[in-house]
Design a protein around this nucleic acid. Structure first.
Length: 304
RNA sequence: GGCACCGUGGCCGAGUGGCUAGGCAGAGCUCUGCAAAAGCUUGUACAGCGGUUCGAAUCCGCUCGGUGCCU
């Protein structure tokens, strides 16, 4: 018997991934899993464009709004959860849809990450403090000493990468790079990847319009309620971080909204860069109808 | 009509004879556990024409455009 099929739907923010994924799932009679590093937080709704109930149209959704901004949650956790969930779902269905804008998350499910031991929070905190007190140069020197191989390939200006690698090094006593590039176990499913496309001008217009709609829908109130938690990583999110200055009387609402639009466009641009260099198997226009012809085009005849 | 000041890359803005300011926007890129994050790269541009000079965004003249004042 052939392996079950995971269909991934990617594309820049605001292109209409949710709508497409839902109609695809309806047609296939299957579930939808979200691969989104922000929509997973139940406190973030309007600003992350979480699909509302009517949009879900009775299609079961998973990995959506199931975490709190106070939880520690990362790609590794996501990969684990998604694989467990898929194992369960595939016992009853032969197909599932994974949709979301966090390309690294999708990639983790499809290709897998290397396995790293847990790093105690206090270890990474130590390196964060070292960055504060001793500077980036110190972290670079330490990594050159502890893991020259990774030092040679990593972006040494990026303190986030430096801290992660150093944390693994000191927590395990072996170089970070020694965990990289291991043989990965094969996935118990096959993947069909889809990227939704649209002209950039049109996408930017949609982004701008969506931000206005979010404001009308009450984004400001949502963000106001989260103001006490603005330091949390989960709130370093487009649509939230830009509104804090307004709520604190530091900037005009208009300027903050302009910032949200700009940062959303930039986010989309980064997603496009990723997708350009990690091409999906199928590029299709955002408004493509989900019908038998499309399923054939995607090599999904068996599900018609 | 006269006089004065000004005209630097999409925008802001430094630079007063040789040594490609800088910022913002845009574009391109990187990506293995906080990824809607974090980081990197990127335009010899000086209104036009002519002149002075070894050399001009910088000096001179004219033209065009803008601003202010005067009649």
């Amino acid at each position: 018997m052939s392996k079950p099929k995971l269909i991934t739907v990617s594309g820049p923010t605001a292109i209409g991934k949710t709508a497409f994924a839902v109609s695809l799932a309806k047609r296939l009679g299957c579930s939808v899993l979200s691969s989104d590093a922000r929509q997973c937080f139940k406190e973030l709704k309007i600003g992350t464009a979480v699909p509302d109930t009517p949009e879900l149209e009775g299609v079961p959704h998973y990995l959506l709004q199931h975490k709190s901004i106070h939880d520690v949650y990362s790609v590794g956790d996501f990969e684990k959860e998604a694989l467990q969930l898929l194992a369960t779902l595939f016992q009853k269905q032969r197909v599932a849809v994974l949709v979301g804008g966090s390309n690294l998350y999708t990639d983790a499910v499809v290709h897998g990450l290397d396995h790293f031991p847990e790093v105690p929070k206090k270890v990474s905190n130590l390196w964060k403090e070292a960055l504060e007190s001793k500077g980036l140069r110190y972290l670079q020197e330490e990594l050159a000493r502890l893991d020259p191989a990774y030092f040679a390939q990593v972006d040494i200006q990026n303190h986030v990468r430096l801290i992660r690698a150093l944390s693994v090094c000191t927590a395990t006593g072996v170089p970070y790079s020694s965990f990289l590039g291991k043989q990965r176990e094969e996935r118990p499913f096959e993947v069909t990847s889809i990227e939704l496309t649209m002209t950039r001008e049109q996408l930017y217009q949609r982004i701008n319009a969506r931000v206005d709609r979010m404001i009308e829908a009450g984004l400001l109130e949502e963000v106001r309620s989260l103001l006490p938690h603005k330091e949390l990583n989960a709130l370093q999110t487009v649509g939230y971080k830009e509104l804090f200055p307004f709520l604190e009387g530091q900037a005009s609402l208009e300027d903050c909204i302009t910032e949200i639009k700009k940062n959303t466009r930039r986010f989309a641009k980064r997603q496009l860069t990723w997708l350009r260099n990690h091409p999906c198997m199928h590029q299709i226009s955002y408004d493509t109808k989900v019908d038998a012809a499309l399923l054939t085009q995607l090599g999904l005849e068996e599900f018609i």
